[in-house]
Each structure stands twice: as C-alpha cells, then as structure tokens.
C-alpha cells in the first residue's frame, strides 16, 4: 500500500466530466480529495492517491489523460530566521502536521502536509510558505 499526494490540473474541456469518479471506478484506487477549485480555464485539485503501487500508477496514468499532474514533495517551507516558534500555526492544521515538542519548539511532520495554507495565513511572522 502506498500513498502519493499530487496536484492535478484538469484540462478545461474535461471540467464537466466526473474524472475522479471514473479513475476510482476504473482502477479501484482510493482517492482523498484534499482541495478542489474550479475556474474558467481549469479545475485544480490536491489529491491523495492510496493503493497498491500498481493501482496507484494506473490511476496516475489515467489522470494524466485528463490533465496535468505533479507529485507533491515537501510543500511547506519554514523560514528558520523568521520563525520564533510562537505556536499560532499549531491548531490551524487539519492534518496534525504541526506539533509542539518537549523543548517548546514547533516541529513539522512535513510528509503529512497537503498544502492547505491554513498555517501560512495564521503566521504572525510570515515565516511559512507553501510552494505552488
């Protein structure tokens, strides 16, 4: 079982097609939609794709027919100079990525981050960036 997180931009001509449902039904992959935004030229999604490696690859191949995709790696960046470990970001994270360690410092479990930006908006020091 593997888990991959991707950005997915659906081509405009497929916006009204139920692409995600098709991928799930045709490949048996599990998909967790973390973000979805429909705009005039494209639809943008952040997806978590879960399944056996073979199934995940099949799903990615299927998706690539309907849009562009990019795997998400280390999407959150912290400016270590700016961050003072105040903790304002901790409760903003829906995925428990951010936690307070025993020595009062704020740590990130970056692998779990989906780039929702809730922490970025809450940071009083503008120390957080989500790569796009």
């Amino acid at each position: 079982m593997i888990k991959k997180r991707i950005y997915f931009w659906t081509y405009s001509k497929y916006i009204s097609k139920p692409v995600i449902a098709d991928v799930i039904l045709n490949t048996g992959v599990k998909i967790n939609i973390l973000k979805a935004k429909v705009e005039p030229q494209e639809a943008f999604l952040i997806l978590e794709i879960i399944g056996d490696e073979e199934v995940v690859n099949k799903a990615l191949e299927y998706l690539s027919k309907y849009g562009e995709l990019e795997e998400i790696k280390d999407i959150i960046k912290r400016d270590e100079e700016r961050c003072v470990h105040c903790g304002c970001c901790v409760t903003q994270c829906p995925f428990d990525v951010i936690y307070v360690s025993e020595d009062y410092s704020i740590e990130f479990d970056k692998d779990k981050c989906v780039g929702c930006k809730n922490c970025v908006k809450a940071c009083p020091f503008k120390a957080l960036k989500v790569l796009e």
Binding site: V84, C86, C88, K121, A122, P124, F125, K126
Partner: peptide, 14 residues
C-alpha cells in the same frame, strides 16, 4: 525583539 502581525488584528511585539 520580534515584530509580528496578528492576522486581521494588528501589529504587536514579541
């Protein structure tokens, strides 16, 4: 001595 902005509230000093 660190300046901050609490979102939609205001500037403050840590």
């Amino acid at each position: 001595v660190r300046a901050a902005t609490m979102p939609k509230y205001g500037p403050t000093l840590y």
